[in-house]
Design a protein around this nucleic acid. Structure first.
Lengths: 104, 104
DNA sequence: TCTGAATATGCCTTGCCAAGCATATTCCGC
DNA sequence: GCGGAATATGCTTGGCAAGGCATATTCAGA
């Protein structure tokens, strides 16, 4: 079921793309610059993201503006939901991995 | 940073293991039976889960009882957190993918 | 101490995916 | 309509990870 979601998100470049698109929609060229990837590589990753519903495209002349679609991420959140009970009970689990967030 | 988390979770068998271990700790043999995998394959997946902190082992004679450790999943939840704002604003995104949750 | 049960590990092969490179496509301005 | 910018696609190669198979390890009981 959720197999596609994971195979999309395993790639660090695609996650970086989503991080950028979370702020605001961007052009392929902008993504190429900010991610320091070649244009073909960027386009291929965008194809994967598009085919799996993570992003949507809007044509603006020759430019393609990509915007995030949160639906698949909501599905991931749903997958994660039953596990959330595990660290709601025992809060120490959070402290274990999130103790890097130390505020003076 | 979170690279390891994803490479662990991409495998469907490992996710199935976590699903089972979420209910209760289990023996390697139990997992082999319930997942319909060979014993070596199961042990290798458990090694991956163990090395990355998703599970903990407890020795009981020759048996090894594996239990889930929610810490890495909490980290995944933290990664997902900023995206959650996206579908808190526009609830339609949830409806799109979660409309299977119909309650009368 | 020997046997067998339970689990782990090593080696090998196969399949898949990302990146590189070249090329095709689309569309604007002149 | 042409040249060039912006983006997409096809082909090939390298690396990596999963599974199969054989084998090593650990431990209890007789």
């Amino acid at each position: 079921m959720s197999d596609a979601i994971w195979s999309v998100l395993i790639d660090p470049n695609r996650r970086a793309m989503l991080d950028l698109l979370r702020e605001r929609p961007r052009t392929v060229g902008e993504l190429v610059d900010e991610l320091d990837l070649t244009q073909p590589t960027t386009s291929k990753h965008l194809r994967v993201l598009r085919d799996s519903g993570f992003v949507r495209v809007h044509k603006d002349a020759q430019r393609r503006v990509y915007a995030i679609d949160p639906a698949p991420l909501a599905a991931l959140d749903a997958w994660l939901a039953p596990y959330r009970l595990l660290w709601n009970d025992r809060l120490d689990a959070l402290g274990h991995h999130l103790d890097t967030t130390k505020e003076p």
